[in-house]
Design a protein around this nucleic acid. Structure first.
Lengths: 203, 203
DNA sequence: GTCTATATTGGGATAGAC
DNA sequence: GTCTATCCCAATATAGAC
C-alpha cells in the first residue's frame, strides 16, 4: 500500500513538497518560466535533494507536476459529479467553483496541466504524454457520468470531448479576461447542450 | 495610410520580420521559452535592431507578437464566417481548418495568443492586456455574425463567449492529444448548441 | 538603422563531502 | 538523503562604433 500524502506542506515528505511546489509554480509561471532553484528554495529542499528524487532533471519534475495536477482535477471532477445526479446541473456547479478558485487567486491559478504543458510541444515529450493522459482520464470520468445518466455510450464519449475542451478554454478565457463570465456561460451552455440529447438527463 | 505588410518574410521590413518571427516562435515555445537572441537570429536581424524597434525589450516584443496573432485569427474568423450564411455550418468548417493547420504543423502550432500569454499572468501585464483584447475582438466578430443571422443580441454575445472558449480549448486538446477529434467534436457541438437557439439560423 | 562586444544575472546540472 | 560549491552556458539588456 502506498503512503498517504499529508495535505499540508509542513508535514509532507521532501519529495511530496518538491512536486507540490513545482506544480503550484508551473501553474502560475509555466514550465519554462519556473526554475529548479526557485522550486527547491520554496519547497524548503536543497538542490541536491531535487536531483536525488528527480535524476531526470526538470523534465521529470515537470512530468510529476502534471500528474499531480491530473490527480487533483480528477478528484474535483469526481466530487462535483457525485454531488448531483443530473450531469448538466453538476457541470454548472463545477464551472462556478472553477471561477471561484480563479477569482480567489486573483486570476493567477489556471489549470495546472494546461499551464505546464503549453510551450513544451516537441521539446518535452514526457510532459506532453502526461498531459494527454490527464485529458483522457477527465474525459473518461465525464463519459462515465453521462452513461450512468442513461446517455448512449457513443454520445457520452463524444460529449465528454467537448465538455473537457470547453472547460479548459473557458478557464483560460476567464483568467485572461479576469472575469467569471466565460466560465459561467460555458456552464450554462454545456448544460443546454447535454439537455438537448437526453432531456433532463438524470436517472 | 499605413504601409501594407508584404506577405513573405524576404521582402518585409526589419520590424515586420522580427514581429512575425517572434510570433511564430512564441506560438511553439511560449513566451518564456523563446529567447530574444533566437528571434533576432531567425529573423535575420541583429540584436541591436531588435532593441532599436522594441526598446521595451522582451515584453514589448511579446505584446506585438500577441497583437499579430490577434489580427491573423481575426482574419481567419472573418473569412470563415463570411463564406457561409449559416453560422453553425461556418463554425464546423472553421474547426476543420484549425484541425488541418494543426496536423500540417505536426501538432506544433496551436493558438499563438494562448501559447504566448500562458505563464505571463502577473508578470507581463502588457501581454495579458493584448490577449484580453484579442479574445474580446474575436467574440465581437462571432456575435456580429449571430446577430446578422437574426439571433437576439443578448443570446449572440452570450454564445460568442462559449464559441471562442470552446475553440480555444478544443485546439489545445487536439494539440495535446495529437488528434483532430476534439476540434471535430467541438465544431459539431457548437453547431448543435447554436441550432438549439435559432433553428437553422441562416437568414 | 545596423553591427559587435560585453556586462550581468540566472539557468540546468554535477561532484563529492557528510 | 542532505548539503555546499561549482561548472558551463544562455538569458536579457546595454554601450558605442559605424
Amino acid at each position: 500500500m502506498k503512503t498517504k500524502a499529508p495535505h499540508d506542506l509542513e508535514t509532507a515528505g521532501t519529495r511530496e513538497r518538491i512536486v507540490r511546489t513545482a506544480s503550484r509554480l508551473m501553474q502560475r509561471q509555466g514550465y519554462e518560466g519556473t526554475g529548479i532553484k526557485q522550486i527547491s528554495r520554496e519547497a524548503g529542499a536543497t538542490l541536491g535533494s531535487v536531483y536525488h528524487f528527480f535524476p531526470g532533471g526538470k523534465q521529470e519534475l515537470g512530468t510529476a507536476a502534471v500528474r499531480l495536477g491530473d490527480e487533483e482535477f480528477t478528484e474535483l471532477l469526481r466530487e462535483s459529479l457525485d454531488a448531483e445526479p443530473d450531469p448538466a446541473k453538476a457541470l454548472v456547479a463545477l464551472t462556478a467553483s472553477l471561477a471561484e478558485g480563479l477569482r480567489e487567486s486573483d486570476w493567477l491559478d489556471g489549470c495546472p496541466v494546461t499551464s505546464t504543458v503549453v510551450g513544451t510541444a516537441g521539446s518535452a515529450p514526457g510532459i506532453q504524454r502526461a498531459a494527454a493522459e490527464a485529458f483522457a482520464r477527465w474525459r473518461a470520468v465525464v463519459a462515465a457520468k453521462l452513461v450512468a445518466a442513461r446517455f448512449a455510450e457513443a454520445d457520452a464519449e463524444d460529449l465528454a470531448h467537448t465538455v473537457i475542451a470547453t472547460l479548459e478554454g473557458a478557464e483560460l478565457a476567464s483568467q485572461v479576461a479576469r472575469s467569471e463570465t466565460p466560465l459561467e456561460a460555458a456552464g450554462r451552455h454545456l448544460a443546454r447542450l447535454i439537455a438537448s440529447y437526453g432531456g433532463s438527463g438524470h436517472s
